[in-house]
């Protein structure tokens, strides 16, 4: 066995900080791979590369091998499995630990005051959109800041993972605040801006009332 597995090597690539380590047992279980048809005829090779079983040639970490089709397919395969893994109990726990450590970064919104974010995809189909970051405090999505993270496929995280995580661990949902920024000129609010802010605050109050009614 090598000192570092393929997965650990993959995770250490700059930009791949958003991924968590998928359990090898999860990858080996063919049931979990149903429908991942990256390339059916080479599936076994790819699984071997990713899990490190029967993998004599140690291709990983060699920059020349980045163009290797097996390597590219293996990375894509890992991403697709990752999207499924982080919906499982183990996966949610791993992603939660990373979220609580702030490993995904902070919300750029000033009034969120450095709230930790979680990665999210806008589509579950690969090659459609890049990964984004979801802030549970303002419930909005942002571009990842280190540019190396911004070109990861969003499908490797999926649209559902943050909702699953916060459903399972509701105590980690941050406290929402009613604080809002309203632009002023020479200390005066601008009418149109202030009007929209009042309307939004009214919507917030309505929602709160509806929730307390139930």
């Amino acid at each position: 066995m090598e000192e570092r597995s393929w997965i650990q090597e993959f995770l250490s690539i700059p930009g791949n900080e958003l991924f968590c380590e998928v359990d090898v047992e999860f990858i080996i279980d063919r049931f979990n791979l149903t429908g991942i048809n990256t390339s059916p005829e080479r599936m076994q090779d790819i699984i071997d590369v990713v899990t490190g079983y029967g993998n004599e040639f140690d291709s990983y970490g060699d920059p020349d091998m980045v163009d290797d089709p097996t390597e590219i397919m293996a990375r894509h395969f890992y991403g697709m499995v990752h999207a499924r893994f982080i919906l499982s109990t183990r996966g949610i726990q791993k992603m939660l630990a990373k979220y609580l450590n702030g490993e995904f970064g902070k919300c750029p919104r000033a009034l969120c005051r450095g709230q930790a974010v979680v990665p999210i995809g806008l589509h579950d189909i690969p090659h459609v959109s890049f990964v984004k970051l979801y802030c549970p405090k303002c419930e909005d999505i942002y571009h990842p800041f280190p540019l190396r993270q911004s070109s990861i496929d969003g499908a490797y995280f999926g649209t559902t993972a943050p909702a699953m995580m916060f459903q399972a661990y509701q105590k980690y949902i941050p406290r929402h605040s009613s604080e809002q920024f309203v632009l002023k000129v020479f200390g005066f609010k601008i009418h149109e801006h202030a009007e929209l802010a009042r309307w939004q605050q009214k919507k917030r109050a309505e929602l709160e009332q509806e929730r307390s009614g139930h």
Binding site: C138, E139, R211, H214
Partner: peptide, 28 residues
């Protein structure tokens, strides 16, 4: 406006983990 979804479904605002901040980015 962005809405967090679960397997393509919206989450009810009445759910405990449901959306609470939609007002922030809402316009008429």
């Amino acid at each position: 406006q962005f809405q967090l979804k679960m397997f393509g479904f919206n989450i009810s605002p009445l759910a405990k983990f449901g959306p609470r901040m939609r007002w922030l980015r809402q316009t008429p």
